[in-house]
């Protein structure tokens, strides 16, 4: 809880002008839902996910993940994420650093959704972690109807290969998210989703129903907050997330 409070204070202290895109959904901000659209070419953004988790065993813990995201090359983004866990979550401390890229193939049309592919690597930087695990995935986003409220459906699928399978581990795990987003006001988006993911440990799955808000504080800051409730055994009882995204204004860039 202390981390959440610190984050909220930081938001208040740092709020100032920005062009972070409140409509551009990113995994973790504040739910597992992402859309098929990448960051603008040459854009760069610092991100921070702060999450409180109460497990099905009623253990409380915190998860945070600073990330850097770059719009590069055109129609693509690359992100580097460094996760940490604290509290009663095991294992705690530094988790597996992840590098992930998303490439978008198309602007959606009236009939065809936007389609993106995901490729990434998870490196064994955490305790008890072995091997570099490749990640592949796809994202589909489709705007619905004629409304100006930007009603959108999203479908996300990821598969992570377990390159060095340990005892009682799967050889890979999947994650699937189906969700919906829409604009509420010029600065505010709301989103809902259902997440189902496998744990690397055999026979463990998570099912979550999530809801979240994304709010544009200024042209460079987006604040997001969300909550998720687990369904069934092995799923967290509840998790609450506060996310921060800040467009980086350095280094200066221009053709000479």
């Amino acid at each position: 809880m202390r981390i959440l409070v610190i984050t909220m204070l930081a938001v208040g202290a740092l709020a100032m002008p920005a062009r972070a895109d409140v409509s551009d959904l990113e995994e973790g901000f504040p739910t597992a839902l992402t859309d098929a659209y990448p960051k603008e070419y040459l854009g760069r953004e610092a991100q921070l996910v702060n999450r409180f988790i109460r497990t099905d065993k009623e253990e409380d813990g915190f998860f945070f993940e600073p990330r850097l995201e770059f719009g590069f090359p055109r129609n693509a983004q690359i992100s580097v994420a460094v996760p940490f866990r604290a509290g009663e979550l095991e294992p705690d401390g530094l988790g597996d650093v992840r590098v992930e890229a998303l490439y978008n193939f198309n602007q959606e049309t009236l009939g065809v959704p936007a389609v993106s592919l995901i490729a990434g690597l998870e490196t064994p930087t955490g305790d008890d972690s072995e091997g570099v695990d490749p990640i592949v995935g796809a994202v589909f986003s489709k705007t619905l109807g004629r409304s100006s409220l930007l009603h959108r459906l999203h479908l996300v699928g990821r598969y992570q290969f377990n390159s060095e399978e340990q005892a009682d581990e799967r050889d890979g795990r999947y994650e699937a998210v189906v969700g919906y987003s829409r604009r509420v006001s010029p600065q505010l988006f709301i989103l809902f989703d259902y997440l189902r993911e496998q744990d690397l440990k055999e026979h463990e799955e998570t099912n979550l129903v999530e809801a979240g808000l994304r709010y544009g504080l200024s042209p460079i800051w987006v604040l997001s907050a969300g909550v998720g409730f687990g369904i069934g055994a092995e799923s967290p009882e509840v998790q609450a997330t506060v996310g921060l995204q800040r467009e980086l204004l350095i280094p200066y860039s221009s053709p000479e």
């Binding site: 603008e40 198309n106 049309t109």
Partner: peptide, 26 residues
Amino acid sequence: LCLLVGSACGGMHLEQRDRVTFMRGP
């Protein structure tokens, strides 16, 4: 991938978003 989606990609005009960020400066 469009064909996999099952939508009528034939004849559709697919184009990329190709958005670019602003110029950084003081």
